[in-house]
């Protein structure tokens, strides 16, 4: 869990969430900006999953390995699910759907950090 990846993923997730909420407030649908932001977030998460996977393969084990792997896999799917679910919404609420997915992603990233740094490893 490198601090750079964690912080940049958090920052991008918050930006996507703000852009989503802004489009809801402006009564607009989501646009290219939102999709690009979600794509950047997804790339960061995939890189993080590879880094963490390599560390796991290298013998590092967080105390709750099963939970950690579950979060690691789940967090990669979240932005994709958020984009798909918001793309099927033709109204301004699409942005809020994407914002929810992004914020949950940010929370899950920090939960991953917690699990990784938990004592007893």
């Amino acid at each position: 869990m490198t601090p750079f990846l964690v912080w940049s993923a958090t920052a991008v997730a918050v930006l996507v969430a703000l852009a989503g909420l802004a489009s809801t407030l402006a009564r607009r649908r989501i646009g290219l900006l939102h999709l690009a932001g979600a794509a950047v977030l997804e790339v960061l998460l995939v890189v993080q999953a590879v880094v963490a996977g390599a560390a796991l393969a290298g013998g590092q084990r967080p105390p709750e390995t099963a939970t950690f792997v579950g979060y690691l896999a789940g967090v990669v799917l979240l932005p994709v699910a958020g984009v798909l679910w918001s793309r099927t919404e033709p109204s301004r609420w699409a942005g809020t759907v994407l914002a929810v997915a992004s914020l949950v992603t940010a929370v899950m990233v920090w939960r991953l950090v917690q699990l990784w740094e938990a004592p007893g490893a």
């Binding site: 009564r27 649908r29 033709p90 609420w93 759907v97």
Partner: peptide
């Protein structure tokens, strides 16, 4: 993209319901 007017489907899973 502006929100298209009048094409919003109803139902529990549309609009705020989707959130």
């Amino acid at each position: 993209m502006p929100e298209p007017a009048g094409t919003r489907p109803g139902g529990t899973a549309a609009g705020p319901g989707r959130v």
